Amino acid sequence: MTTARLSRTYATEDGDTVEMTVPDTEALHSAGLSVRTAILERYVREELGRVLGIHPRSVDTTGRPMGCLGIGSISGIELQYRMEGALGVELNLQRLLLANSAQELIDCLAWQFGPEGAEKYGSTVPA
C-alpha cells in the first residue's frame, strides 16, 4: 500500500543511516483516514528527522510545538518545499511553523488526501 516512488537516505548525528520513503499518493487517496494518518506519520517523522539529524523514532510528534522541536523559518521552508514536491499538496508555511505538534501537521496532510478535509485544509495539487 505504501509503494515507494522515491527513496532517499540521510545520516543521523549518531552515525546511523536512515532510508526515507515517500508515500505513493495514489495509495494515500484510496486509503481510509486512519491508514493515511499512519503512512504520513512515518513520512513526516522521516522528514523531520532528516532536518533535525535524528532518527525518526526520536521525533516527538505529540508533546512539543514545531518551534520547540527545532523547526524555524529556514527549516520550515525546506520542509514545506520537500513535502509539497513529494506529496503534491499545498502546505501553508504558517500552519507548519505554528503547529502545536507534528501530529497536527500529520493530521492536516492526512485530511488533504481524502474527501473529509478538502474544504478545511485544502486539497492536493492537481497532477
Rank of each mutant, 00 (worst) to 15 (best):
M1R: 14
A4R: 05
R5W: 09
R5V: 15
L6F: 10
S7T: 14
S7E: 14
R8P: 05
Y10E: 03
Y10T: 02
A11N: 10
T12L: 08
G15T: 07
G15M: 11
G15S: 06
D16A: 12
T17A: 12
V18C: 03
E19M: 14
E19N: 09
T21V: 14
T21H: 09
T21D: 11
V22N: 00
V22H: 00
V22G: 03
P23A: 12
P23H: 05
D24V: 03
T25V: 15
E26Y: 10
H29Q: 15
S30T: 15
S30W: 13
S30F: 09
G32C: 12
G32V: 10
V35H: 02
R36W: 05
T37N: 00
T37P: 00
A38H: 13
I39G: 05
R42K: 13
R42L: 04
V44Q: 01
V44N: 01
R45D: 06
R45W: 00
E46H: 11
E46W: 07
L48W: 01
L48Q: 00
R50C: 01
R50S: 05
L52P: 07
L52K: 07
G53K: 02
I54Q: 06
I54V: 13
H55E: 01
R57K: 11
D60G: 11
T62I: 06
T62H: 03
G63L: 10
G63R: 04
R64V: 12
P65I: 05
P65L: 03
P65H: 13
P65R: 02
G67M: 10
G67D: 14
L69H: 03
G70N: 03
G72T: 14
S75D: 01
S75T: 10
S75E: 09
G76S: 09
G76A: 14
I77F: 08
E78N: 11
L79R: 03
L79D: 04
Q80C: 06
R82S: 11
R82A: 13
E84S: 11
G85E: 13
G85L: 10
A86W: 04
L87P: 01
V89Q: 01
V89H: 03
E90G: 12
L91N: 06
L93W: 05
L93M: 09
R95Q: 13
L96F: 07
L97W: 02
A99F: 05
A102D: 07
Q103S: 10
L105G: 00
I106K: 03
C108M: 01
L109P: 04
A110Q: 03
Q112W: 01
Q112H: 02
F113H: 04
F113I: 10
F113N: 01
G114I: 08
P115C: 08
P115S: 15
A118G: 15
E119N: 15
E119L: 14
K120E: 15
K120A: 15
K120C: 12
K120I: 15
Y121A: 11
Y121C: 15
Y121L: 11
G122M: 11
G122I: 11
G122D: 11
S123M: 12
T124G: 13
T124P: 07
V125P: 00
V125I: 14
P126D: 09
P126A: 15
A127L: 11
A127F: 13
